[in-house]
Design a protein around this nucleic acid. Structure first.
Lengths: 126, 126
DNA sequence: CTGAACTTGAGAATCGATTATCGTATCGAA
DNA sequence: TTCGATACGATAATCGATTCTCAAGTTCAG
């Protein structure tokens, strides 16, 4: 039936996501996977991500101006910073108060996204 | 030289953006344009948007999970509310304080996006 | 009014992202 | 160990969005 096997590739992908300090695109995941254990196909990455999403193990982060990224689902509420130079996505701890006050009183706010754009410390150094 | 002509199509596109109460995608713009004056090609919409962007007349609004939208640039700083039921995008007046404090001190924040998701008053009534 | 510069529309071409294909390799329950 | 179910890799196919092409039409300074 429709059971998931545990394979070298899937474990590698999960490990990479666990170790990552930022959400990763499928392409980035493959890159990193190919540094450690050699040879994980892009299609395999997509298949694994789909499976992990279905199981709720990872979460998709959709960010304007970047392709979808993935991160472990167990990382609490946080937001993201996008470097306009290197296009990297960084996790930002914490949140802001009174966000919901922006909406009209007769609107019901369920969730929110906050995205900061700018230059990361790495790119600022040049 | 590289001067912009004023054409029926470009005026129509600007009019649509001026009248819109929400940011529009190129596709939506073309749809509306073809209701009023008939026949504006999609390529023309893209070309016009590009030209208006270059002149700073309109602004791009990037929303996760949707293709880029455009709105008049003279609407000052604001954010957006997306109704999860009717998918409408609402403008939210005002902003929040201390947003930049979320980023590490050695990052340079240039701009930000805040997006609230929930149910608008219309959809709540049912 | 004239003409060079600019714009248009329709469809083809391109782009990056994602999915499908298929023959081979791996998994793991029994 | 065996074997059906599942996953793999490489690459082709597909997708939606955007840009390009080019012949024909429009704009506007002079």
């Amino acid at each position: 039936m429709n059971v998931s096997y545990s394979t070298r590739q899937r474990e590698a992908i999960l490990d990479i996501l666990r170790r990552a300090d930022q959400p990763l695109t499928p392409g980035e995941i493959r890159e990193r996977a190919n540094q450690d254990s050699a040879g994980i196909g892009l299609a395999t990455v997509y298949r694994a991500l789909k499976a992990f999403m279905a199981r709720g193990v990872i979460a998709q982060v959709e960010i304007p101006g970047a392709s979808p990224c993935y991160e472990m689902a167990d990382r609490g509420h946080h937001h993201h910073f996008i470097c306009q130079h290197c296009q990297r996505v960084y996790d930002l701890p914490g949140c802001v108060r009174d966000l919901e006050a922006l909406a009209p009183r007769d609107f019901q706010v369920q969730r929110h996204e906050v995205i900061l754009y700018g230059l990361c410390s790495n790119c600022l150094e040049r």
